[in-house]
Design a protein around this nucleic acid. Structure first.
Lengths: 358, 358
DNA sequence: TTGTAGGCGTTATCAT
DNA sequence: ATGATAACGCCTACAA
């Protein structure tokens, strides 16, 4: 068993104190930069601590100070819905922001037979975390209900139906899909279909609402079967798109708004598979800005969001709540960035006129 | 300052003891199911604890017991290489396994200006974690070097060049690509190209070696420009594939082995974009088993690995090391599962003979 | 400016 | 079978 200290037990304040011939209290205050310590002593102590490889025990410190300095994050429980491409990015941003302030991120999963609230409750109850960040928010979300009444500081990435009295950080999904419809309408599209996601997930619901509102306001045409709910991945997207393609040519949409890039890619495959041209016969838009959208052919027009920055900001927000408990709920809304590429063109575009975006 | 208990201070053993008229020691032993406690007392204590919402403070417990019961995981630092689809799955499996044993998972990122070893060292030094899991292992990996000499129990997902004296869990990448070449050779392919990844990442290097060995042993032909390194995403894959397609038709490969599914999808787009048929003019194989591989057209033949189970097993292994420090390093090698779909066919296959896999 | 002492919540070792 | 008592490592009045 090797350690960073040459031999024997782990370095502690008590050992430092003995080593330097000072009292434990002095050591502690010197290390924590208390003002009432002689400059010479402080330097001597900090030097010795550095040289002897002293690291404060976070358990002891937390116990003594009554703080936790740890944020909890419960991984979304959707094992079927393989690999949320965002999660890693959000975690990266969140953990980075927390690390910058010497806070920790405790990540937990939901074992079979338990639900997310159980897990959150256990983490909070055993004082393992002092705050929470949650993601993949549903329209009604039991986690938010629980946290709201628990008094634990928390930040929601996304938001619920009734997002008035807690802190959240969301993309303006509704506005993004309104922008998308405007963009398509300006290009001349009228018959615009929509592959919508799981309607219990609020991001999907918001995008769906944006589509419906914008279509009504801007004179788009929603034909029979144009709005298909429950499309969550490329596979179901392919089936749904095939249903759209079976509509007679006159009534068939000329543009297709997809709730995510993954769904859009499935739709593109169906269109190609039917011998039609994406961006020619049917324009396709996605949402997320995944890198793969630049590699597919034609390149995918999308609404881009920066999930790393979302994680960073969630970190800033939750740190604010935890360190200043009197702070009021803060709500942040970011706009997605419409990124035109080759998968969207005016209806009836011939191959030669194709967009060259990428 | 808010708390989860309705009012006043948090519930502790001391309060329980006063409430029940017992001593703190008795409460502690009753809660921890020591054998020398009267059955009646134990039940009375546990009932009261439940009703009063008692939760042990993990800081206090860790301090007293000298254990940590937390595993560290440092997120790969590749912000360019957006969204590793595995990470979320691995974390899910790992956190699930740890939660089953009441251990925690501490996830950390690497802020700009620090390196991964600094982060690991800080977590270990401040007694925040008692063990480590690392992923995305490089051929030479400073994290492994550090952990090896540190004495901290750790498990590597993947392995380094010299994987003799520590615990790891890996997919048999070399064998998988040997199997892939065998499969293609049996179908009649001779001219087989390979889009290989970052050669400093061991998984990419292993797959590359498998390709080279199998091609040599099984009489495949590696033409000029057939082996392209450094392909890490769909975008670079598209460029590289276009280079392959510019080879005169006689010398052009009839099959293309890709280091990942994401790379394979980029390759497919390039082939389609050039007016050629995937699975007809050129067969394409990937590695991972991403769901999107079933949605692309034609469906992608791939080597499948279950990243959730990899995370679970990594959790089991690291728990074993932490709870039984005398246990020897354990090394686990899993085979990837070759999953035939429509993107691979015998060379010179006409459209009518196409595979129907999915 | 420094030392002393008590406490944070839990566990473990003695007695009883 | 239970009750004292002393750790665990650190922080923080208060005293000197």
């Amino acid at each position: 068993m090797s350690r960073s200290t040459p031999r024997n037990e782990t370095m502690s304040i008590a050992r430092l104190a003995r080593h330097l011939g000072l009292s434990e209290g002095t050591i502690s205050r010197a290390l924590n930069n208390y003002p009432d310590i002689a400059e010479k002593t402080r330097e001597r102590v900090q030097k010795a601590a550095r040289e002897l490889g002293y690291r404060p025990s976070s358990s002891a410190r937390r116990l003594a100070r009554g703080v936790i300095e740890t944020i909890g994050f419960v991984l979304p429980t959707c094992r079927t819905q393989h690999s949320d491409p965002f999660l890693a990015e959000i975690l990266n941003g969140l953990a980075t922001e927390l690390a910058l302030h010497d806070w920790d991120l405790l990540v937990s999963a939901v074992p079979d037979g338990q639900n997310e609230v159980d897990v959150i409750d256990r983490l909070v109850g055993s004082c393992k975390v002092g705050g929470f960040v949650i993601a993949r928010t549903r329209r009604h979300d039991a986690r938010v209900d629980y946290l709201r009444q628990s008094g634990v500081p928390f930040v929601v990435q996304g938001r619920t139906d009734d997002p008035s009295d807690y802190s959240w950080l969301d993309i303006d999904n509704e506005q993004a899909f309104i922008d998308a419809v405007s963009y398509l309408r300006r290009l001349g599209h009228v018959k615009i279909a929509c592959l919508s996601g799981d309607p219990t997930m609020n991001f999907a619901w918001q995008r769906r609402s944006g589509y419906l509102h914008a279509m009504a306001q801007q004179g788009g045409h929603i034909g029979v079967g144009y709005l298909i709910d429950g499309i969550t991945d490329a596979v179901s997207a392919k089936d749904a798109t095939n249903r759209l393609l079976s509509i007679t040519e006159n009534d068939r949409p000329t543009a297709l708004l997809c709730v995510t890039d993954a769904v859009a890619i499935g739709a593109m495959q169906a269109i190609n598979g039917a011998g039609l041209g994406v961006g020619r016969d049917i324009s396709v838009m996605g949402f997320d800005g995944l890198p793969i959208g630049q590699a597919v052919h034609p390149a995918l027009t999308t609404l881009h969001q920066d999930s790393y920055e979302i994680g960073r900001e969630a970190g800033r927000m939750v740190l604010g709540l935890c360190t200043d408990p009197s702070s009021l709920p803060k709500q942040t809304l970011w706009q997605a960035k419409l990124t035109p590429r080759a998968s969207v063109n005016p209806p009836g575009t011939s191959p030669a006129q194709h967009n060259q975006g990428g």
